[in-house]
């Protein structure tokens, strides 16, 4: 048996010994429910989301309205579906901004470790990190106006240092490894090494962190729209649904409970998924399991 053949034979056996972590499955299932609901809402919702029917307001869940109706008689299930779209879009774009800016910054800092560039980048990141994220997000949206776009930017800015730090930390230890040394000896520039060798090796970490940041983004979006600084009406948003239901809790608890549970389950699902991914992808945990 050649070496190559032995590797191939060993591979399926190895994965067979390591079943996918249960938290990953639960997390995936929970998140998938909301992603599918959001995707489906582009094509179909049980009722038009801005269809008001005031005589039929505050109805408890029924066959006609599985999750009941809100204070304007709108179908809550339809609003949750479209609201999922808002939450996911805001959080996804915010994570995108954080990654797109944070990762290159982290790579650059690691490539020039100990240098002036490293200092400037990391201290600037510390500065952003030092502010309470949600308070500054409120400030940004209050100054530039309340809208989904500004919410994305505000949440996105606070994702930058998270990714920059993570990338730099992981890249620093990689820079000491032999294969990087080999690449340097071969004459590759720091930028090429970062892109071709460092980045693929920190990708796992970034995916795990991205999932966690995604769930925090959903929470932040809900927080911003709860105080009226996220997506503006008539765009449904879970945070605003919660805020508007506040005075009706004693009349029709489901109006507040349902968007609240939607936020809880999405965030829980994404966190479980992040945990599961870490177990699956982190080499340290992988070794400990085998």
């Amino acid at each position: 048996m050649s070496l190559a053949e032995r590797d191939r034979a060993a591979a399926p056996a190895a994965s067979g010994r390591r079943p996918l972590p249960r938290s990953l499955w639960i997390g995936l299932a929970l998140s998938a429910v909301f992603v599918v609901a959001a995707a489906l809402s582009f094509l179909w919702t049980p009722y038009p989301v801005d269809g008001m029917n005031i005589p039929a307001r505050l109805q408890p869940p029924s066959w006609a309205h599985p999750l009941g109706t809100d204070h304007f008689g709108r179908d809550i299930l339809s609003m949750i579906m479209v609201g999922a779209r808002t939450s996911i879009a805001v959080a996804l774009l915010a994570v995108g901004i954080g990654m797109a800016l944070g990762v290159p910054l982290g790579l650059a800092a690691a490539a020039r470790r100990g240098g002036l560039l490293d200092e400037v980048i990391m201290r600037a990141n510390d500065l952003i990190f030092a502010f309470p994220a949600l308070v500054i997000a409120i400030l940004i949206t209050a100054v530039f106006g309340a809208s989904a776009v500004n919410a994305i930017v505000a949440i996105g800015i606070f994702n930058i240092p998270v990714f920059a730090r993570l990338t730099r930390g992981a890249a620093l230890s990689l820079w000491e490894r032999e294969f990087i040394l080999a690449a340097r000896v071969a004459g590759k520039s720091a930028a090429r090494i970062s892109a071709e060798h460092i980045l693929p090796n920190v990708a796992n970490l970034l995916i795990v962190q991205g999932t966690i940041q995604f769930s925090l983004g959903i929470l932040a979006e809900a927080g911003l729209s709860y105080v009226g600084l996220g997506a503006q009406p008539p765009t449904p948003s879970w945070g605003r649904m919660l805020a508007e239901a506040q005075t009706m809790v004693s009349l029709a608890p489901h109006v507040a409970l349902i968007p609240g549970l939607a936020i809880v389950f999405t965030v829980l699902g994404l966190n479980l998924m992040g945990d599961g991914l870490r177990d699956l992808l982190d080499p340290k945990v992988r070794k400990a399991r085998t």
Binding site: D50, M52, I54, H71, F72, G145, A146, G228, Q232, P233, P234
Partner: peptide, 22 residues
């Protein structure tokens, strides 16, 4: 706030779009 959302829906029904700012 609530009246605004209702009126926005009523205006939309005749073709007038409103950008709501709270």
């Amino acid at each position: 706030r609530r009246g605004g959302e209702i009126i926005a829906a009523q205006l939309r029904a005749v073709g007038i779009e409103t950008e709501i700012t709270n």
